[in-house]
């Protein structure tokens, strides 16, 4: 296994451990035991990553935030994956006006800057639960997947085994599902894994702007937002979610890269 793949797995394991084991260990992320006396405490044995301005335990918020952020990413990737693969497959395999129109829709969607679309959407919809935010992030992420899958599907149209299936009398739908779809999945999977990093950063960005997941539910982005006024006195408020974000992003990027090498190697 490549060194980068090992590093990616290590990072992913660290984040997974935080999300799975952290919350039971850390207790309630919303509890404000002593808002006046024990706010902005430095990291210690009692509060591993210190406390915030409301005396909430930063580790508890980080661990619960990991669950929220990862759940949002998972939902976003599921939505982007299903929409992107389905749309790309049809656009790349169909004939005539429908496929051409679908292709133009993908190109158009890709031409719009994702952040701007997100801002408009979120501003229009208003307050969103985490699942809703994940869905919105997925809705803005599918065109990239669709374009990738469309390209693969177009190339596979000319593969000998696709012709063979048609010659055997397979219906267009059967050719699509059994011969073309499996060939487009590996690159789509790579893109989706790499896309997790984007979604984590976008979620953090939206929450930082105050239009993502609403307080007091912790996400890494909202934690960074709340840390801002206290940077001078309590840098741990920023460092904890910041480092977690970097590790999670690195995990997605490294794993996506490792997957790409693995699949490229298989093809050679």
């Amino acid at each position: 296994m490549m060194a980068s793949a090992r590093a990616g797995l290590g990072c992913a394991a660290a984040i997974a451990a935080l999300a799975l084991l952290g919350p039971p260990l850390a207790g309630d992320p919303l509890a404000q035991p002593d808002p006046l006396g024990s706010s902005l405490l430095a990291p210690s044995g009692a509060h591993w990553f210190g406390t915030d301005q409301f005396s909430r335990d930063v580790f508890a918020r980080l661990a619960h935030g990991a669950r929220t952020s990862l759940a949002i990413a998972a939902i976003a990737m599921a939505v982007a994956g299903v929409l992107g693969i389905a749309f790309g497959l049809l656009a790349g395999s169909g004939r005539g006006l429908v496929a051409a129109t679908m292709s133009r829709v993908v190109d158009l969607a890709l031409a719009l800057p994702r952040v701007v679309v997100l801002l408009v959407l979120v501003a229009a919809i208003g307050a969103l639960p985490p699942a809703g935010l994940g869905a919105v992030l997925g809705l803005t992420g599918w065109p990239a997947i669709a374009r990738l899958v469309r390209g693969e599907a177009l190339a596979l149209q000319h593969a000998g085994y696709v012709t063979a299936a048609r010659a055997l009398g397979a219906t267009p739908g059967r050719v699509l599902v059994r011969e073309i779809l499996p060939g487009t999945l590996p690159p789509a999977l790579i893109a989706l894994t790499l896309g997790v990093a984007d979604v984590l950063l976008l979620e953090a960005g939206l929450s930082f702007l105050g239009i993502g997941v609403r307080p007091p539910t912790p996400t890494w982005g909202s934690m960074i937002l709340e840390a801002r006024p206290h940077l001078g006195q309590a840098p741990w408020l920023l460092l904890a979610p910041g480092i977690a974000l970097v590790i999670a992003t690195a995990a997605a990027t490294l794993l996506g890269d490792a997957l790409r090498h693995r699949i490229a190697g298989d093809r050679a």
């Binding site: 000998g160 085994y161 063979a164 009398g169 397979a170 499996p182 093809r267």
Partner: peptide, 30 residues
């Protein structure tokens, strides 16, 4: 499609004519 059953194709490039992801028995059974 039903008529195609009775006329079949053998390719020049025997590698490209087989889906690399499918087992040989599966391809023959298709």
């Amino acid at each position: 499609r039903a008529t195609r059953r009775r006329m079949q194709l053998v390719f020049q490039d025997p590698g490209g004519a087989l889906n690399p992801r499918r087992r040989v028995g599966d391809a023959i059974a298709e």
